[in-house]
Write a protein that binds this DNA or RNA. Structure first.
Length: 493
RNA sequence: GGUGCGAUGGCCGAGUGGCUAGGCUCAGGUCUGCAAAACCUGCUACAGCGGUUCGAAUCCGCUUCGCACCUCCA
């Protein structure tokens, strides 16, 4: 843990050296999905970002408790505390229990996250399972005087909070200005000011999801769940809170206010936010018709997609951009990522089969190690790591064809390093290798026989036969690669 | 309107005072019976206008354009 990992803290708008509160433990909380619809491309970005962080911290020797919530209640359609609960609405439309909706989409979410190679969080708490904790925290905020009850609902008193602490620091908002401009009170509403947010909402008669509380039968405000659950599992103070940039305001701003009001101090030390993903230069939105689910992506079943893209292609594509940059999705970019990943995985395979050369190394394995460490420590600069890996892809191919040399000691170190970076930290998986399991055992002797016959044909300079075998195998999805010396190799495409 | 972020070669995408990012595409070459793969070579860019500097894509200012959040969205 000597490394100097720096991460960009949204709170200070600068890169800071990461110092855990209680090493080797690290507490990481990330806002998870609201499970009312199929997981889409946008869900993959924070998942990849924080999976990378989780994996890297773990590889540095930290014991990370990674908490990612499932929002199954309280997330309304409109943040002005109007509108229907998202889960309830879906349940009503599909004539199902809200918990059926939540369960169905939670399972789907897990399935696609698994496909994308995400490690499971340490704890994945559901908002509906933590109503008691949320009510408890609302009580504390009321006792501290930073909330008021109004007609069975409880609202956070932003104006009062702002007098004692500063509201809006994370998102760069100035409440004083907002106050000056918003002198008129929200007349018919229960709230005093439009920017006050609900901690507890009284449920109308049509509301299915409701729990008893000291104030009314109702349900918690959306922001409460993260404050209550992060506190329960990570404590009053914890290291890192993450999420998408779109959550900075109001969600995370409200979380900070809630935690500070209840505990007297802020909860999270570092706030990390991944940037958004655009599709052909536009943000993804249901109304824009460019809303692509992960299922559509993996099967190619969306009008915008020229072909299916594998889960690892998506993961690699995202890792090729820095998590704080906007990333533009396009068929061209995805196809480039697919080819690049293929090149990289082939090199890893080549490396793992490689034997040491005689004599001293002509390559410096330390170069990869230094570049990897430096890049990851610089706010998880995965694109730089991948650039280094591609430089070493060339080197590995040169070792393979003998134009470079490597000692057995260096080779062992290189194999260890490359496999660690590619599989354990970047979390990639060799999809082609995985595909062949099951079929290969029976196929191998057959293909080997055909290649033997082809080798004989080649010896006899019977090119038509040789090419026929190669072409027919290609038609069957088996690609033949002739070697300079030795038998031909083959791979399933 | 408010708050932020950005504009990099054919495409994607790093970098951030002086030294080739990388991937994909394209062109030429080596190898090969021919392919494929691999390797070598080439295409050398930083929105515009000013300023600071010995030197700026990188710092400062202005302009133009784009994006995100402020309203449901990861």
């Amino acid at each position: 843990m000597e490394s100097k990992l720096t991460i960009y803290n949204t709170l200070t708008r600068s890169k800071e050296v990461f110092v855990p509160l209680d090493p080797p433990l690290v507490g990481l909380y990330v806002c998870g999905p609201t499970v009312y619809g199929d997981p889409h491309l946008g869900h993959a970005r924070p998942a990849v970002t924080f999976d990378l962080l989780f994996r890297y911290l773990t590889s540095l020797g930290y014991r990370v408790r990674y908490v990612r919530n499932i929002t199954d209640v309280g997330h309304l359609e409109n943040d002005a505390d109007e509108g229907e609960d998202k889960i309830s609405k879906k349940a009503r439309l599909e004539q199902l229990e809200p918990m059926e909706i939540a369960h169905y989409y939670t399972v789907r979410y897990h399935r696609y996250m698994d496909a994308l190679g995400m490690l499971s969080p340490s704890i994945e708490p559901q908002a509906s399972g933590h109503i008691i904790e949320q009510i408890g925290m609302v009580k504390q905020i009321l006792e501290a005087g930073y909330a008021y009850e109004s007609n069975g609902s409880v609202y956070f008193d932003v104006e009062k909070y702002n007098r004692d602490h500063r509201y809006g620091r994370l998102s760069g908002r100035n409440i004083d200005d907002m106050l000056a401009n918003t002198r008129e009170l929200c007349g018919q509403d229960d709230k005093r000011y439009s920017f006050d947010f609900a901690l507890w909402k009284k449920a109308g008669p049509e509301h299915i999801m409701r729990w008893p509380s000291p104030w009314s039968d109702g349900f918690p405000g959306w922001h409460m769940e993260c404050s209550a659950m992060s506190r329960k599992y990570l404590g009053d103070r914890f290291d890192i809170h993450g999420g998408g940039m779109d959550l900075v305001f109001p969600h995370h701003e409200a979380e900070i206010a809630q935690s500070t009001a209840a505990c007297g101090h802020e909860a999270a030390r570092y706030w990390m936010h991944n940037n958004m993903l655009t599709i052909n230069g536009q943000k993804m939105g249901k109304s824009l018709g460019n809303f692509i689910t992960l299922e559509e992506l993996f099967t190619g079943s969306h009008p915008l997609l020229e072909q299916p893209y594998s889960p690892m292609t998506i993961r690699f594509f995202m890792l090729q951009a820095h998590y704080r940059s906007t990333l533009d999705f396009s068929n061209e970019a995805l196809q480039a990522a697919e080819k690049g990943l293929d090149r990289l995985m082939k090199a890893v395979e080549t490396l793992n089969k490689l034997g040491a050369s005689a004599g001293k190394s002509t390559v410096d394995v330390g170069d990869l190690e230094r570049r990897y460490t430096e890049a990851m420590n610089d706010d998880l600069n995965s694109p730089m790591v991948i650039a280094a890996l591609f430089d070493w892809t060339r080197t590995i191919n040169q070792l393979h064809d003998g134009s470079q040399k490597i000692s057995s000691e260096d080779l062992a170190r290189l194999k260890m390093l490359v496999n660690m970076i590619v599989f354990e930290v970047l979390g990639l998986r060799d999809e082609k290798a995985a595909d062949t399991v099951g079929g290969t055992d029976h196929l191998t002797p057959v293909v080997d026989l055909l290649l033997e016959l082809r080798a004989e044909a080649k010896t006899n300079k019977d090119w038509p036969l040789s090419d026929r075998i190669r072409n027919r195998l290609a038609d069957a999805g088996i690609k033949v690669k002739d070697q300079k010396d030795g038998p031909s190799e083959w791979t399933i495409e």
